[in-house]
Simulated assay, not measured.
Amino acid sequence: MFGDMMGMLGKLKETQEKVQQTKERLNTVIIDEQSPDGLLKVSITANRTIKSIEVNDSLLEDKEQLEDYLILTLNKAIEKATTINENELAAVAKDGMPNIPGMDAFLK
């Protein structure tokens, strides 16, 4: 029993390291998103850090349209980044979990 406990603790530490490595890797995964007409472009990491925003000069003349575009485009990019982030981290966590009957229900 004690050996099983030590094995599980080792597996937990290994999983924590893999999660940390995955988080670091997700800093290099870039999601590019743009407004439907291409006048606004944003790039963010899968960890939801904004890397760049490109605004076409024509949008600078219409503050309300620029604000709307920023909200819509950033939200779309954040949604995609969140999906990637959650899927990647869930896969690492699930891989590191001990095989306990019924545990799959909690990971869905």
Rank of each mutant, 00 (worst) to 15 (best):
E61P: 00
T49R: 05
A81E: 01
Q34V: 04
E54Y: 03
G38D: 06
T73D: 06
G10E: 15
K23L: 12
D4L: 15
N47W: 02
L59P: 00
L60W: 07
L39N: 02
E88R: 01
D95K: 11
Y69F: 14
T82P: 03
L74I: 12
L40D: 00
M97I: 11
G3Y: 12
L107I: 10
K11M: 10
P101M: 05
G102L: 04
I84C: 05
L40T: 03
G96W: 08
I30M: 11
L39S: 11
E14S: 15
G3T: 11
L70Y: 02
P36V: 01
G10L: 09
N99F: 08
L59D: 00
L66N: 05
M6W: 11
E67W: 03
L74Q: 04
G10Y: 08
I50M: 09
E61I: 10
F106T: 06
Y69G: 00
M97S: 14
D68G: 09
D37S: 08
G96V: 06
L89T: 13
L26R: 00
L107A: 13
L74P: 00
E79W: 04
R48A: 09
M1I: 12
D32G: 09
E79V: 10
G3V: 02
K11F: 07
T83K: 14
L60E: 06
D57Q: 15
G7E: 15
I50Y: 04
P98N: 12
I30S: 04
K41H: 11
T45R: 01
L12M: 13
A93Y: 03
E33C: 11
M6L: 15
R48G: 07
G102D: 03
T82M: 14
E64H: 02
S43P: 02
D104E: 13
T83W: 08
T83I: 14
N27W: 04
L60N: 14
L59W: 09
L60M: 10
N27P: 06
Q16M: 14
E86V: 05
I50G: 10
D32T: 11
K51M: 10
E14W: 07
K108A: 12
E67T: 06
K11G: 07
G7P: 05
E54G: 05
M6F: 15
E14R: 05
Q21L: 12
L70I: 05
A77M: 08
I84N: 00
D62F: 07
S52R: 10
P98G: 06
D57S: 13
T73H: 02
I100F: 10
L107T: 05
K63E: 15
D104Q: 12
L74S: 04
I78P: 00
D95H: 06
N87P: 01
T15E: 01
K23Y: 03
A91L: 13
L70F: 02
N87I: 14
A105F: 06
G10A: 15
L89G: 10
S58E: 13
G102I: 01
T22Q: 06
